[in-house]
């Protein structure tokens, strides 16, 4: 039964992913495909926070710091280098190293969970202000101006690795982003089955016990946080490529808050849920943006409130209990336990 449960767990998202990857380009026009590409990028960003917060138990309030670093690192590197292979890697490396450095001080300094949240928030604020206030010609890194609040327009897009003449068109970008989303999702799924992944979850449950067992919780938290930072950077890099433009809003509070809302709405402690949250709410942002009647921020505030009060576990855990619970009982740790009656049947 459990084997069947695990398979369904893998098969459903696997089939969905592949169907979307190869099916959507057939059915959608280019404009819609571009839209879906953006959703895929945001879903990667959502996964990065879903991993460190939902599984690692580390609440990162300033996740846009790593998203923005990935975006700017790519833009500045590609303007200087031209060919995009190295810039792509730099865009992942810079936020990864930043997360490692900040994480080292936070976790080896054993600061409390609340201050971890505050420190990450502060990091994002500092980066936003620094980048936002460097608009003069005197602020540049190599050939690239930083651009201040104007950001950097006309950022060259990705090319086929080591082949600068062969740049990716929007169709290629779709396959790249959707493909990476699938890889990241299943990569994290796999990671969570390893000893490292399970210990990371155990730290969320009870850090003290993890240490009494003999695992270095600081090292595990650092690794979790660093992986999340790197993935957020990857999303940032793809985001610049999507719009050929980067601005300080990638570092903004609104950006950080959005990711948190996606994860909350989708379900803290799941991976699939936050992806759905990211796609649904990004879609909503576009829809609301195209009319004047309702203010987007107000709407998001209302959605957040509704979920916190009425569906605190998020969409995914509820869906799993209601629908899949009947068939297969795939079990993943969540904050609130599923109904006892449903579990009893399994034994």
């Amino acid at each position: 039964m459990k084997i069947a449960g695990i398979r369904l767990d893998l098969i459903v998202p696997g089939v969905c992913g592949l169907a979307l990857l190869f099916g959507l380009p057939i059915f959608l026009d280019l404009f819609s495909l571009l839209q879906v590409t953006l959703y895929a990028i945001m879903a990667i960003l959502a996964l990065s926070l879903a991993f460190i917060w939902g599984y690692g138990g580390i609440l990162c309030l300033g996740h846009s710091a790593f998203f923005g670093l990935g975006a700017y690192a790519y833009a500045i590197a590609v303007i200087n280098i031209g060919e995009s292979t190295a810039p792509f890697l730099i865009a992942i490396l810079v936020p990864t190293l930043a997360a490692a450095a900040v994480g080292y001080f936070m976790f080896y300094g054993r600061i409390s969970d609340v201050y971890v949240g505050v420190m990450t928030l502060t990091l994002a604020l500092i980066l936003f202000n620094v980048v936002n206030s460097t608009s003069g010609a005197q602020y540049h890194i190599g050939k690239a101006p930083i651009g201040g609040y104007n950001g950097l327009p006309n950022v060259p897009g990705l090319n086929v690795p080591f082949d600068p003449d062969n740049s990716l068109d929007p169709g290629d970008m779709y396959y790249l982003c959707m493909g990476l989303l699938i890889v990241v999702y299943f990569g994290l799924r796999w990671l969570l089955t390893t000893r490292f992944g399970r210990v990371a979850v155990a730290i969320r449950e009870n850090e003290k016990r993890v240490e009494f067992i003999g695992y270095d919780s600081r090292l595990h938290k650092l690794a979790t946080f660093t992986i999340g930072g790197g993935l957020a950077g990857l999303a940032g890099c793809l985001f610049v490529n999507w719009g050929a433009y980067v601005s300080p809003t990638t570092f903004s509070m609104m950006q950080s808050a959005q990711v948190i809302i996606w994860v909350l709405v989708g379900g803290v402690g799941t991976l699939f849920g936050p992806m759905i949250g990211a796609v649904a709410l990004s879609w909503l942002t576009v829809e609301v943006g195209s009319q004047q009647l309702i203010d987007a921020n107000l709407l998001f505030g209302a959605i957040l409130l509704v979920f916190v009060l009425l569906v605190p576990r998020g969409i995914m855990p509820v869906l799993i209990d209601r629908v899949w619970g009947r068939i297969s009982l795939p079990r993943r740790p969540v904050f609130t336990a599923p109904p006892v009656a449903a579990r009893e049947g399994k034994r």
């Binding site: 399970r198 155990a202 449950e205 003290k208 016990r209 009494f212 079990r331 969540v334 904050f335």
Partner: peptide, 10 residues
């Protein structure tokens, strides 16, 4: 000090 959100086996 146990892991409340995990099963006994986990």
């Amino acid at each position: 000090n146990v892991f409340d959100g995990l099963t006994v086996r986990e």
